[in-house]
Design a binder for these strands. Structure first.
Lengths: 360, 360
DNA sequence: TTGAAAGCGCTAACAA
DNA sequence: TTGTTAGCGCTTTCAA
């Protein structure tokens, strides 16, 4: 009797607090007169459990509204099935396709994604890394912020051997795989294309040279000039934050140069598009007075007039590969011991750089 | 002696497996000759713990490299400190600022964000809800997919009283707060502006009327026409998927209409921009032959020529408010018992809709 | 101001 | 094929 009363009290309290307890494997065990261990096994694909039993377990679980408790499991197996993603910003078409690719693979393989934006600042990047570390992510996918100088803030993770993969904006580290495109080659091709169109005085506009994407594209630019024996003037290389504001300033500075440059290779489409707008505002003809090539194949590149020649690469694919490689590493799958993985890219030629023959 | 050996074996095994165990509050307790309970208290702001002791604990934790284990805590207190976010796509400037706002508030208040894209499909939306449910998020922020017909797939969450907040693309539900702008008013203002510029035959292009954003903007459009006693022709309302492809088809259909419309109000900037491109390709003059107004103030709206008149609203703010409201609900903070929260919006007038007086 | 002890829900080694 | 049992790391009630 006493027990009965105690039970009533508990139930009433539960109802009062509107906190009806979750169904656990113990409840199912009791209902089916089996042990919790059997239930646990039955709910997975454990070998050595009678088919019949398994069916009963799964059915009971469904009926009772059982919901797997990830945290108990995490605690027990010391694994979170969570991947951290740190990116500069997710407001570009490119990044959004990268994330979509990651999400696809992560979902397929039973992982969750925690996404954080560094807003292009190391400070926020460091904070994000720490949060991720404390959330005990199983692995980390990172594209570096604009002003990150070194990767010391990843050392705690690395010491613990938490897999870390860089993508797009990568860093060199023996422990880490990196995924990117061949930015040198892409920069080389873009510049060569401008030269082929008759440009002789070509400006490169890029960001912080600590970032591979900007440094490598510049290298490619230089390579092309060298190959075609065009002079390399230091004033033709402009380094800024690659924002709209600074892009427009760069365009204006450029138009004041004497002699005026006749070609621009900008390391992102935002700046390339801004340049075109400024040039046209000043009455210049793009591409005949000055030809422009961008980078990323942003949707903007097809809105601007004339349409922008740009370098395309597959964000979705990059995301998929990054996530798959990371998960393989986490699960110690025998993925090749690569250090750097390069994806395909493609120069898309549009009107902003194609000169009519007459101007040649 | 035997114990010693066993210990050695364990340590060696740990090293061999490269799985050095994490420091726990027990380790700190042992080192400081205190109980785990005291450590646990010392690590928080528990009242009734000597200042001196607390200091020692915090210092020891730091020195030993202690790292809080969220999962043990989650398991114990039945709370994950994780918020789920489901959005159609994150490839727009607007969405990315929304997410940034959410992230800011979540970080400040000690929550993590799990983000998932429905890719505009109910099917994926349902899958995401289930994943989130199983991850036991403390609350959910949702902007509905294009083709979601009802919100039954949220009923499990709702039954469990897991807070659910809709933003931007909202749904009505007694249990849920919604955050949006006054789309009727915005649509009304946009249309009125076109009328004021002399447009008399205005087309509305929007998406699925199940989505408030499209239905309400249409209402506003109708309201304005009614007020100014302009006729409402059914063929002037075009409903499609609001993609570039369908935007361009709509633009072409529109140009074949007789008499040709002289104004377009598109419920997003993608379609508005596409329309302008099509019109100009056919030799029409925007705004004099046909004026265009968009929605969202996407960066594209300032790239297209002529620059697009559009409705701006603050994504960052919307994200912040959504997250803050959700967390207040989760923590049962006395946030006002609101059902719908409307944010400010603003019609930004640019060249795509401003007609020279001569054409009036 | 601190400690002892129970238990959150699950898994896995070992036993049967 | 199934069960027993211990324990993952933490919090919290009750006791001291």
């Amino acid at each position: 009797m006493e027990k009965q009363d105690l039970f009533s009290i508990i139930v009433m309290k539960a109802i009062e607090m509107k906190e009806v307890k979750d169904v656990t494997i113990y409840d199912i065990a009791k209902a089916l007169d089996l042990s919790p261990a059997t239930i646990s096994r039955g709910l997975k694909d454990h070998p050595g459990i009678k088919k019949e039993t398994k069916k009963r377990i799964v059915e009971a679980a469904r009926q009772m509204g059982y919901q797997h408790n990830t945290f108990a499991r995490n605690l027990r197996v010391r694994k979170t099935n969570t991947i951290g993603v740190i990116i500069p910003r997710l407001n570009s078409y490119f990044m959004s396709t990268v994330i979509a690719g990651m999400e696809k693979v992560a979902n397929e393989r039973g992982y969750n994604l925690i996404i954080s934006q560094s807003q292009e600042s190391v400070k926020k990047e460091i904070a994000s890394v720490n949060t991720m570390y404390n959330s005990r992510v199983d692995g980390l996918l990172v594209s570096l912020a604009y002003d990150t100088e070194n990767i010391d803030h990843f050392s705690a993770l690395l010491k613990k051997e938490i897999p870390l993969i860089f993508f797009d904006r990568i860093a060199e580290h023996i422990q880490c795989t990196s995924i990117a495109i061949d930015n040198v080659k892409a920069g080389y091709e873009a510049t060569l294309h401008l030269i082929d169109q008759g440009c002789r005085r070509i400006v490169y506009i890029g960001g912080n040279l600590k970032r591979n994407v900007y440094a490598d594209r510049l290298k490619g630019y230089r390579l092309a000039l060298m190959e075609r024996e065009l002079p390399q003037a230091p004033e033709l290389v402009i380094i800024n934050h690659m924002s709209e504001q600074e892009g427009s300033e760069a365009a204006q500075a450029l138009m004041r140069m004497k002699p005026r440059p006749d070609g621009v290779f900008a390391a992102n489409d935002t700046v390339a598009v801004t340049c075109i707008r400024e040039f046209r505002r000043q009455g210049l003809c793009v591409p005949n007075d000055i030809a422009v090539v961008g980078f990323n194949n942003d949707p903007n590149s097809r809105v601007i007039e004339p349409n922008l020649t740009t370098v395309d690469y597959l964000g979705h694919e990059m995301g998929e590969i990054a996530a798959a490689t990371l998960i393989n590493t986490i699960e110690k799958k025998p993925s090749a011991h690569l250090n750097t993985l390069l994806l395909r890219h493609n120069l898309i030629v549009r009107q902003s750089s194609v000169r009519s023959h007459s101007t040649h």
